[in-house]
Amino acid sequence: MTAHVSIETVTALLQTYGADPDRWPPELRGPATARLAAQPALAALAAAECALDEDLAQWPAHASRLEARAALVALAQSTPQDIAPNHDVPAALPRNWRRGLVGAGGLVAAGLAVALVTTPADVPVPQTASAPATVVRVAAPTVLTDDDALQMVFSEVDSDEWL
């Protein structure tokens, strides 16, 4: 009869339901109890689980969630909430770190604007072994008006004939 229940199954029963066989599923009680009696290693595990069951039984059970919540609130209110500042440890960030962050962001934006304005129109292309260095002229961006954009979107072109 012990061959029907593996050691892993008995271990899982002990860890899931505890050491009391009355809490185990009824169809596994007989074979698991027989396997437990035959294996000394399982008996040691059952003793450890029995000690855990006894520890858990000593915990007070709350009648309702409201009582548990009231007990938690009472504990929180009885615990001092204010922590005295430690003046020996310097602060990681200065008090007005946000102003510094905004100022640094402004400096980065100004630097990017200067870099975009002062970038030359002639950009050299890196020289490779097979081709001499060439210079590519970058065209200035075209600014479209609303009328130009509408005319581009709604004008017919040769590729639109299939529509």
Rank of each mutant, 00 (worst) to 15 (best):
A131F: 07
A133V: 04
P85W: 06
P80Y: 04
T79Q: 13
P120Y: 04
A76D: 14
A115D: 07
P124R: 00
L107N: 03
A91K: 07
V117F: 09
I83Q: 05
N96S: 08
H87V: 02
A113E: 01
A91F: 09
V125P: 00
G106M: 13
L112G: 05
P85T: 01
L107F: 13
Q127T: 10
W97M: 05
G103S: 10
G100I: 10
V138W: 05
V108H: 03
L112F: 10
P132G: 02
S78Q: 15
Q77G: 03
G100T: 09
T119G: 03
A109F: 13
L116P: 01
T79R: 05
V108P: 01
P85C: 03
T79H: 10
A140I: 00
G106F: 10
R95Q: 15
A140Q: 11
T118H: 02
G106Q: 09
A92V: 09
A115T: 05
R99Y: 12
A133I: 01
R95V: 12
T118A: 14
G100E: 14
P94T: 00
Q77W: 04
A113G: 06
V108T: 09
S78W: 08
A140L: 14
N96K: 05
L107M: 14
Q81N: 11
Q127N: 07
A121P: 06
P124Q: 02
L112Y: 07
G111W: 02
A139E: 11
R95Y: 09
T128D: 02
N86M: 09
P126C: 01
V123E: 12
P94D: 00
T118M: 10
P124V: 00
D88I: 00
V125K: 04
V138Q: 08
A76F: 09
A92I: 10
A133K: 15
R99A: 11
Q77Y: 06
A109V: 12
G103W: 14
T128V: 05
Q81L: 11
P124L: 02
P120V: 00
G103M: 11
V89Y: 05
A104K: 04
V114G: 02
L101E: 06
T79W: 13
T128L: 06
P80C: 01
A109L: 14
D122W: 10
P141Q: 02
T119R: 14
V125Y: 04
A121C: 07
V102K: 04
V138E: 07
V125D: 06
V89N: 09
R137M: 05
V138I: 12
P126I: 00
A109Q: 09
G111S: 07
G105C: 11
S78R: 12
V117W: 11
T118V: 13
D88H: 12
A129Q: 11
A92L: 14
A129H: 07
G111N: 02
A133N: 07
D82G: 08
L75A: 15
A92F: 13
R98E: 11
R99D: 14
R98C: 04
V108S: 11
L116E: 11
P126M: 01
A121R: 08
I83L: 10
T119A: 11
V102E: 06
D122L: 15
R99K: 13
R99W: 12
A139P: 03
G100D: 14
V117R: 04
P80E: 00
S130G: 07
L101R: 13
P85F: 02
V102T: 06
A104V: 04
G106V: 06
D88Q: 11
G103Y: 14
